[in-house]
Structure formats: C-alpha cells, structure tokens
Design a protein around this nucleic acid. Structure first.
Lengths: 166, 166
DNA sequence: TTCGGGCATGCAAGATTATTGTGCCGGGGC
DNA sequence: GCCCCGGCACAATAATCTTGCATGCCCGAA
C-alpha cells in the first residue's frame, strides 16, 4: 500500500482544500480571490494535489430523495471465520456492489460497517439477503434503516497548517 | 420539507448522472460523446439537474490518509428522552460539527448512526466525549473505530429509466 | 556577508471549454 | 392536417483554464 508521507500543507493549502471540499465548481479566479492568490497559482496548487493523490476525485453529489425513492441503511456485520482470505473476499464483494456506498472494517464485536443505498425497502431487504444472508461465512448482521438523513458528505477535517511557511 | 415529485429521467439522464457521480471533471464534449449528445445538449441537461436540485453539489473528495493521519469511526447513539425538541437539538449539533461527516436517524434500538472523521485517536475520543458524553440526554453510545476503509463514496443507484421517451 | 539554486508567484498570451442564440425536427393535441 | 412545444445540433461568443516567462524570496554554501 502506497503510504505516501503526506505532503506539507501551508495555510493557503488548507483554505483551498476546504473550499474545494465544499464546492469544487468554483472558478480558479474565484478561488484565488478567496485565498489571495492568482488563478494560475491556484491552478498549480490544485494540479499538485491531484498528482499527490490528495484529491482523489471530483464528483457530483445527488440528492437521494430527489433522484427518486431511496432507502439508506447502515448494516453491521460480523464474519464467522476470520481468515485473511475470508476478509479479502468480503471486501471484494462490497467493492463490486454499486449499492454499497461505504464499507469500513472496524474494531470491536462487529467486523464491518456497511452503508447501503437502495431504491425501495423491498430492494433493501433483497440486497441484505443477497450480500449477507446468502454468505454462509457471516455469523450475524443487523440492519439499521435510516428514517432521515441529518447530514451527509465526505468532508475531512484538515490538519492545522504546518509551522512551515506562512 | 420540499418533497419535489422527482423529475422524470430518461435513459440518457441516467447515463449522464452515473458519469457525473463517478467523475464530474469530464468536459461536456466528452460526456456528450459517451451518451450520444452534443455538448450543448449535455450542458442544458446538467443545468436542469442543478435547477431541480437533483445534483445538490459538486465536491472534491480527499484521500483521508494522504491528507494526514486520519481516524474514521462510526458511532451508534441512543437518546434518553425522545422528545421532538431533543431530537432537533441533537440533529443541529451534528450538523454544526465539521468532524461529523454523516448522520442518519435510524429505526431500532439505536436512534442515530454518526460517522466521524478525526485527526487522531485521541481527538476521536475527545470528540466522542464532547458530542455524546457531555450531553446528558444521551442514554448510550458505542464507537466503532475503523481499521480500514474498504470503500467510500456517496454514489446512488439510479432508478431504471421511465418508460417515457427512448 | 554574499552568491547561486530551487521554488512559488503574477502576468499575459494562447488553447480549451462552457454558454447562449438560432433554426430545425418530431410528437402530441386540436 | 396543422400548430405548438420540447429538445436537438450548429455556430458564434464568452468564460475559463493552461502554459511560458521573468521576477522575487528564502535557503544553504562559500
């Protein structure tokens, strides 16, 4: 796994990245205006973030309930046998399923937290069966169906700027 | 709450939205190429998605572990008193905290699922204390710290195109 | 202290890309 | 059959992005 040592970020980088996390549709001119830099300087920084893999991608976020009926659910999962191979297989299956939005391997009695997005309660149930019940290596799983989405996003808190260069 | 009746989507819409969910950085020309439409037609459709709130925003997704040390955790929460007011207050607090990535109100013994992003284990603990322990209306909460991120994103499965116009 | 290199910047030209106006075509309603 | 509406392609225009270049700053080395 490419554990790159993390490029150093100054105050402007943090400002920029926060703006981009919030709305990546802004123009370079606008961004530059907000951070006190010329558009071209901004552009070069952003290019660097991409090259460094700091910005992994740029996506459009759809409104779940505007797209059509949507059921979101969180599923807690515990595997039966914990072999490396079983974990790998499970992870692969989660990655392959488009209706799995997120999947984390966690500490404690549960092994995984999985966030599902389905188009109906019925489909949500079917998905659970297909992904978890049909797998005979899953000891137990529990589905927490969402009533309401209070907040959603992938925004990360950024580290305080390195004492580097102000 | 503005429960807009969902605009009808044809096959091209679904194709386009899927492309945009995957990578919103593509040019109109490229998008048009993939869906068999001219750039201007694509542009007009996208403008419509925005107007309809179908695309709620466009963001840059950062790589958590490239940005710096990051600890992700899922927290399950049960309130003590279930009054409307208490729920509203809790939701407000989640929305206000930048380190809360996602928050869902769910069915079952747990009331909420909260996804946290912190910069260290220490901070993660502090955050938990601040958000949940300090609140005397929280009966119980359980933190599931993530070892590993198998998958992440906000991609939604799109409904099959309406029988509308092919 | 002074010199030289690396690095990031602003500016401005040039290339791409997005936006908008126009006319055309096909389907549905009258 | 005719008209209206919606969506399309094309083209001109506008906006935005990209790149080359010269400059200034900070640093280490002499």
């Amino acid at each position: 796994m490419p554990e790159t040592p993390t490029p150093r970020l100054d105050e402007t980088d943090v400002l920029l990245l926060d703006l981009l996390q919030d709305d990546a549709g802004r123009t370079l001119y606008e961004l530059g205006d907000q951070v006190g830099l010329s558009p071209s300087a901004v552009q070069r920084r952003i290019a660097r973030y991409r090259k460094d893999g700091l910005i992994s991608r740029q996506v459009a976020v759809l409104d779940p309930h505007r797209v059509g009926p949507t059921v979101l659910a969180t599923v807690l999962v515990t595997l039966d046998q914990e072999s490396f191979e079983h974990h790998r297989e499970f992870a692969e299956r989660m990655r392959a399923e488009p209706q799995v939005q997120q999947c984390y391997q966690v500490a404690g009695p549960w092994d995984y937290v999985v966030v599902l997005a389905a188009r109906s309660m019925r489909e949500c149930g079917r998905l659970g069966n297909q992904l978890f019940k049909a797998d005979d290596n899953i000891r137990r799983y529990e589905t927490l169906v969402a009533f309401d989405t209070i907040k959603t996003g992938l925004t990360l808190p950024l580290p305080a700027p390195q004492p580097g260069r102000p």
